[in-house]
Amino acid sequence: MTPRHATRAALLLAATLTLAACAPAVQPPDDPAPPAESAHGDFDGARELAEPALHLATVDGAGVVTHVDLIDGSSETLAEIDPVDELIGDGRFLFGVRDGSVSVIDSGVWTWSHGDHFHYYEAPSRVVGEIVGEGIATVVANDHGVGLRFADEAVLLDQKALGEARIVETFRVAADGVQGTVVPLSSGAAMTATAPDGTSVIEVVTAGGEPHSTQACTGAGGSITTTVGVVIGCADSALLSVGGSLDEWERIPAPADALLPTDFEGRKGRPRVAGLADDGALWMLDTRAREWLRHDIGEPIVRAAAIDDTEGRMVLLASTGDVLILQDGAIVARTTPLVTASLATPELALGISFVVDQQRVYLNGPAENTVWEIAPADGARISRTFDAQHPPLHLAGTGR
């Protein structure tokens, strides 16, 4: 990508998304856990910015990756890759997942936290390469690295090498064939595995893939990183690796043996995250307080993410396509139905995502050819819409 400020006029002329309404102020994530040292901006070609270069990335059915600048609404084609089934982002890198391979794209924009202040960087964007394996991989990308779980192999990538446009596998080891995840830690990873008695467990391994320890985790699911540490969802609890340590594990048990979510969504760098249990219950997990809070709102919800602002808001997607704002356990605002057509088509519904910032929430509508910017603190007002020429099948945020 050409430096953003130098090419603003050209990007506006070449825009493939049309901006409606005015641009809000954008802010960086707050209260984040300091990431691994390899994530710093000291790369050849990187330059420091005075403000975060917040963007949205979308992928269409042909594999065209579009990058939208949230400051001015301009857009450009970031990359053209093979079509994907899923898009994963960590704030800088994008991972396009399909059967048999994962494409890695460096968006060229990111935020670096020093705990009490931030640095913002921009560098040329590029397709880093592909990781090949059997089946459709699960990808977990956090501040410590990138873990991939193929059908029969577990892979951990060197994050610093990705910033240098190199794919370096810290380890690639055989997996037991059960669908699972590889969760990067500060000096290794946590992998889902099956114990000799048939129960699911978390196997903690070193950076070289050597066994280190084992943690019980019935029904192990997804993972998210908060300012407190790395979370892995289990059916009856959440496992918390404090600071991403291999050794400092805590268990946050379910209240009264409730069924818990095993996948979570939330704003980057915040302690509270949200998830939906298999029985439809909505939960907030506070990793700082080490507690769960259940919300019953009286209607089916298909997605939930914690905004975790000063009011503790959550953003929800109802099965009718409305976006709801939850505060203090009550619905305080809702939009009109936005993604009804997308939800009615199962393969499109899988790609609907929230991207959550401090003041704005973004939602993609693949069938509606639209990305909405929503102001959760202002009555769920639609502050901008981006009308896409190419269906935004998948959505991720960059520059965060």
Rank of each mutant, 00 (worst) to 15 (best):
N364Y: 08
A349G: 13
R334I: 06
I325P: 00
L324F: 04
L395I: 10
T336I: 14
A333G: 08
L363E: 05
L338A: 14
H390Q: 14
L316S: 05
G321L: 04
V371C: 08
L363H: 07
A341T: 00
A367F: 11
I325N: 00
A380R: 08
A377Q: 10
P376A: 12
R360W: 02
A344T: 02
F386C: 03
A396F: 14
V332A: 09
E368K: 10
V339F: 09
M314I: 05
E368C: 15
E368Y: 11
L363T: 05
V355Q: 07
D387H: 09
Q359W: 00
S342Y: 12
T335D: 07
P337I: 11
L393V: 13
D387T: 07
P337S: 12
A341G: 01
S353E: 04
L316G: 02
A377G: 02
D378Y: 02
D357N: 02
L316F: 03
Q358V: 07
A349P: 13
P366M: 04
V355Y: 03
P392M: 01
A367K: 14
H394P: 05
Q359G: 04
A330S: 10
D328N: 12
A367R: 07
T345K: 12
V332N: 12
A341M: 01
P391Q: 12
Q359V: 03
V361L: 07
Q389P: 08
L350M: 14
L326K: 01
H390M: 15
D378A: 04
I382V: 12
A333W: 03
G329A: 02
D387V: 15
L343H: 08
I374W: 00
V332F: 06
V332L: 06
T370H: 10
T345F: 05
L363V: 08
I325A: 03
T385D: 01
A330M: 13
L343C: 13
G365Q: 13
A396R: 13
A380T: 14
Q389K: 15
P366F: 09
I382L: 15
V323C: 01
V323N: 00
R384V: 00
L350T: 13
A367I: 14
A318D: 06
D357W: 01
L338S: 07
L348E: 13
Q358H: 05
I331D: 02
T385V: 00
S319K: 06
L393Y: 10
V339D: 10
T385M: 00
R360E: 12
D387F: 07
R360K: 12
N364A: 09
A388V: 05
L324C: 01
W372S: 02
S342L: 13
Q358L: 13
R313C: 11
L324P: 02
A377T: 09
M314R: 04
L350V: 15
L348F: 12
S342H: 08
G351T: 05
G321T: 02
G351W: 04
R384L: 03
I325D: 04
I374D: 04
L395K: 07
H390C: 14
T320H: 00
R360I: 05
R360H: 07
P346K: 04
N369A: 15
T345L: 11
V323L: 00
F386L: 13
D378Q: 03
L338R: 11
L326A: 03
N369G: 11
